[in-house]
Write a protein that binds this DNA or RNA. Structure first.
Lengths: 223, 223
DNA sequence: ACATTTCCGTTGTTTTTACAACAAAAAGAT
DNA sequence: ATCTTTTTGTTGTAAAAACAACGGAAATGT
């Protein structure tokens, strides 16, 4: 519980609890039996097939949402980080089991709320819950839009187009032509759904032709 | 308004209004300034760049959610039908403009609710609104999960794998090994993100090799 | 019934990708 | 600092896809 206190400010400022005062938030955390849990690197938070009844909020670290296609190929659906939520859509869809894995990329700290328990107890009676679900709706909307953007990414025809679309989006998010990505090459390849070595090759070609400049994970868009 | 009455039962049974009694629903429809609008075939309901402040519910017909990549290639993100909602995520994300087009595939009837107007008037005060947002949360969850499934589809390596993954999902949705799809060949290709002629070729090959049987848009999974 | 348009399947060619194998570089461990 | 492990870049080859072009089928309109 002390750990929860340590992160109280961050928790309070996260989108999930937007618009709540201290009293409401503390009440909510108690009602939802909030706890902080640490996961080691490469640990699974959620497995395909799990029933999800918790709300997960990443306090620190990074998590991959992945899916293994039936022949060993790994698909990275999204990379989640500090202040992101995990598997919200499976909380909202009753009786649907998770179709994905959530795997930590590094040591990760997660806030866990027992959503089901609280909602069944207080029904929709409490005010806090109303604010919460409003926030959840907005968060889910954002996630939805990001998934659409990801579909746009992987739907490009060539590796080059996938890379440039991805880079444009990153630059836009960062409000700058330079940005640092969190993926290593293999993860980026699995995210864009291409072969790593072919992607590496295309990266150097893009650099030689003057479209981008990069050093390790720091990129600059030139065109 | 008569038209609205004509569809009242269908509206009442749609997921958006789940759990509301007649009184609540009628109040809501009035408060949200509900109206029915007919769109012709190939008409645009939403364009890329639009700000969305309405809730759209398809009463009859079919709609493509599309995006044109900068070189004429069309990406079909999803196909929506009777009782589906349109562009919900852009209602939930304030100040975000639509990144996609919504285009009717055939003559289509849509129920439109002025979401913004009502929420700003009655704040979160009214009970109906609470039930509504709860429903919206669940609908968005489902959409989210379907987007993930779509990512899985287009992330398959070969055209064959994309087709078979798509067919499996359709069979599962239909609880049967036979099913009829609503896409024509070009649309299916744009949905799976492959070349139409190459896909046609792969379809016949799959049939010759005994994995599937099809006649026009009716398919059977054999394996 | 006929003409017109749209849709679908087939084939050959060119482009792009995946894959495998390896070398270089970087990161981590002792 | 040295050794080990992981990550990244490079190349050649085989597989797959995109593309273009076309003929036939089906649907639509008159």
């Amino acid at each position: 519980m002390e750990r929860l206190e340590k992160y109280y400010n961050q928790i309070k400022n996260s989108p999930v609890f937007f618009g709540m005062n201290d009293e409401e938030l503390r009440g909510l955390l108690e009602c939802f039996n909030a706890r902080v849990r640490k996961y080691e690197k490469e640990e699974m938070i959620i497995r395909q097939g799990d029933m999800i009844s918790n709300i997960y909020l990443i306090l620190d670290g990074a998590v991959n949402i992945e899916k293994d296609s039936y022949w060993g190929r790994r698909i990275i659906i999204s990379r989640l980080e500090k202040n992101d939520n995990l598997a919200l859509s499976f909380v909202g869809s009753k009786d649907v089991e998770s179709s994905v894995d959530a795997i930590t990329v590094e040591d990760t700290l997660v806030l866990i709320l027992g959503y089901e328990k609280c909602t069944s107890m207080c029904q929709n009676a409490c005010v806090r819950h109303k604010v919460l679900i409003n926030n959840l709706f907005q968060i889910l909307s954002k996630e939805n839009i990001e998934l659409i953007q990801k579909i746009e990414n992987v739907s490009q025809k060539t590796i080059r187009d996938k890379l440039m679309t991805y880079f444009s989006n990153e630059a836009q998010k960062n409000h700058s032509n330079t940005f640092t990505i969190n993926f290593n090459r293999q993860d980026l390849a699995d995210y864009l759904n291409v072969d790593r070595s072919a992607m590496s090759f295309e990266l150097s070609k893009l650099q030689k032709e003057g479209y981008i400049k990069y050093d390790k994970n720091h990129f600059e868009l030139l065109s």
